[in-house]
């Protein structure tokens, strides 16, 4: 069971949180301007990396805030937790294709 650092409440057990999928996928500003393929990419396709993964978590049984966690999908090691309004350091591993929240 993961130990997740909530940026507001501190380290808590995974059972207090709910998972929100990959972070850094902003909703397109003008969906109608997108082709079906581009819309499908936003809607269905996720990077599913082996290694560093930025993901959304919600402290559902606590402060109910959403935040970003960088977790290694191989080891489950957590590099850090970030508020949504924080500028998140770019992970060493990846050239991220999407800008982060708040960037």
């Amino acid at each position: 069971m993961l130990l997740i650092e909530c940026p507001w409440c501190g380290p808590r057990a995974e059972t207090e949180f709910s998972y929100g999928g990959e972070a850094g996928i902003p909703r397109p500003a003008d969906p109608d301007a997108l082709s079906d393929a581009e819309w499908a990419d936003y809607l269905f396709y996720r990077s599913n990396p082996r290694g560093a993964h930025r993901e959304l978590w919600n402290h559902a049984q606590g402060c109910r805030r959403w935040f970003v966690v960088e977790r290694d999908t191989v080891t489950n090691r957590i590099a850090g937790s970030f508020r949504l309004d924080e500028t998140v350091p770019v992970p060493a591993s990846a050239a991220e294709k999407q800008p982060e929240q708040g960037d």
Binding site: G20, P26, R27, L56, N58, R64, W66, L84, D85, Q101
Partner: peptide, 9 residues
Amino acid sequence: EKWLQTEWP
């Protein structure tokens, strides 16, 4: 809540 916090803060 998720939309408010993550997309339209």
